[in-house]
Design a protein around this nucleic acid. Structure first.
Ligand SMILES: [Zn+2]
Ligand SMILES: [Zn+2]
Ligand SMILES: [Zn+2]
Ligand SMILES: [Zn+2]
Lengths: 138, 138
DNA sequence: CTTGAAGCTCTAGTGACTGTAGGAATTATC
DNA sequence: GATAATTCCTACAGTCACTAGAGCTTCAAG
């Protein structure tokens, strides 16, 4: 049986974050010691690692909650799980696309000025004042 | 003189957002009508467009506050403004890099499973349970 | 048996808004 | 000029995934 601190050290998840995951229903409410402190077993450690990995891959908490629910029905088909992952991948790709446009526009703006002008002439300020100088939408 | 609603329609910035920008010190406190309603002039419209465009390009509020401050000293050199833009570009590039790694990993995971398995065998669930199956860090 | 670390609950703060409640002012219609 | 519809006001709660702190209790080592 692990204390919340040892669980934290083993997984790299901070103590308040573990409590937060419990509150959000990702971790089941832990057993308690006589003095009301949380005690964890191996299965909690595995579940926490699952949560942490999913978060590191950018999945949000409702998605993780659903994945955990699905993972408890080992004989069901995995279509829902695959769909969650695929939708997340699509969302990541959209974010990348939006950021790429930003990058292009910012790169163009930044390379038009080298800091050696007055504010009045500065292309950065002028470009921010007038979207008409932009090449695309954002 | 424009009401906050007309200013909102002309700029596409929602009314509560305009009030929020005022609170954050991006827009100066507007003049008021006899009945205490905000009244705007052309210069406010231009400043709001500046703010909105900067936000659309991803700059945060402290950066925009600083850019507005700089833009009021038209004879000063523009090095600070250019630096803010360049730093933001660098931050955008970092975000893209992080998301690209995520995309790669997610793409690999998703393409390993086509929804036609049981949860027990599902590669999505297995990959989330075990970062050892990943190619990179995140 | 003392002491210091680690645990507990509860609350508030992050960033950039968005939405709501309850009331006052303005504008439009008759 | 009365009334109705719209717009405006302030102040506060909620979003997301944590993080930090206050004030108190329990645990483990010496
Ligand atoms: Zn410049
Ligand atoms: Zn633009
Ligand atoms: Zn699958
Ligand atoms: Zn991984």
């Amino acid at each position: 049986m692990l204390s919340i601190g040892s669980l934290s050290k083993r997984t790299g998840v901070k103590v308040p974050t573990i409590r937060y995951y419990e509150q959000m229903g990702l971790l089941k409410a832990a057993e308690r010691s006589e003095g009301n402190q949380r005690r964890y077993e191996r299965s909690d450690l595995e579940r926490l690692a699952f949560i942490r990995h999913a978060r590191d891959l950018g999945l949000d908490i409702p998605a993780i909650r659903e994945l955990i629910r699905l993972s408890e029905h080992s004989q069901q088909p995995c279509a829902d799980a695959d769909r969650i992952a695929a939708e997340h991948l699509a969302a990541v790709r959209e974010k990348i696309a939006r950021l790429r446009k930003l990058e292009q526009e910012l790169d163009r703006i930044v390379s038009h000025c080298d800091g050696g002008h007055s504010i009045e002439e500065c292309y950065v300020i002028r470009a921010l004042s007038d979207h008409g100088l932009c090449e695309g939408e954002h």
